[in-house]
Amino acid sequence: MSDAPAAKELTETVRPESLGTITDDGPRSARQTRRPKSRIMKSKTREAIAAYVFLIPWILGMILLTLGPMLYSLYLSFTQYDLLSDPRWVGLQNYTRMFTADPRYLKSVAVTLVYVAISVPLLLIVSMLLALLLNRNMKFLTGYRALFYLPSLMGASVAIAALWRLVFGAQGLVNQALAIFGIEHGSWVGNPDDALTTIITLTLWVFGSTMIIFLAGLRQIPKELHEAATMDGAGAIRRFISVTIPLMTPLIFFNTLMGTIHAFQSFTGAYVVSGGTGGPADSTLFYTLYLYQRGFAQLDMGYASAMAWVLLAVLAAFSAFFFWTARFWVHYGDER
């Protein structure tokens, strides 16, 4: 597929340059008929042309697979479309139906918001605590780091989601562990009150990448700052609040932003744990799962597009707001 652009680059970029080489050799370059042309062509122009040749695949992808589809999806969101007949313009009907006539949609919004509001802060706290615990020069550090990261590799897989469904099942590991302490509990996955908890624990289990980003940040805090604070009589907690946290705010900002965007889009866990239904009683009906059901199970593609645009609007608004708040609480180093 990309052989064509690659070959094009070869011909377009290498040839003028090799001409340039020969030019330096003096008389031999007289053979080259295109020499004067390449000299006239400014190196700036040549650089720009080369750049756009390098960018051909990406620009094509941008237009054909991202921007074009986005616009088409915006158009579809004002239509009724089932893939078989032509889209039929319905104005704002999809959007009004969402908020006035579709209780399952509102349920999916509620489930997703609860999920994001609980899982993201917990994820940050757990990651930070473990990063602090690991922030020492100690034996086996790389080994520990690797093991903590392991779930991040597997967390998005069907295998782990399937395991979770069994671990939180009626006779799963969790209930067997609770039984040791004399606690009786029914199936977590099968109970509407507990099913979401199952998926939140799955999200928390995948804290490794967030933790590693925090750990990298902690390691860059100059020791002198902590020493100075200690000399001033600050205890460990005081030092954490007044030295560590302010210096970590750029990473906290980053992890919160990415974690939130990620959480809004989470799909596989809910799909596999609930068997694709979002059940029991729609308690794990994540926004993206409902979007999938609407668009691809019921072929209601106009409605699904409208849902996607609402999600985009919410995420954009959240990101903009969050970036705006950054000026009040995110401290960058002196160099910025």
């Binding site: 589809p69 579809l76 809004f264 699904a304 996607a308 985009l312």
Partner: peptide
Amino acid sequence: LLLGTMLLPSQVTMVPQYILFN
């Protein structure tokens, strides 16, 4: 634009991409 697409939820392009590939 590149940075913007990093934050773009894939659901927005999911439906039209499906239609395109279809």
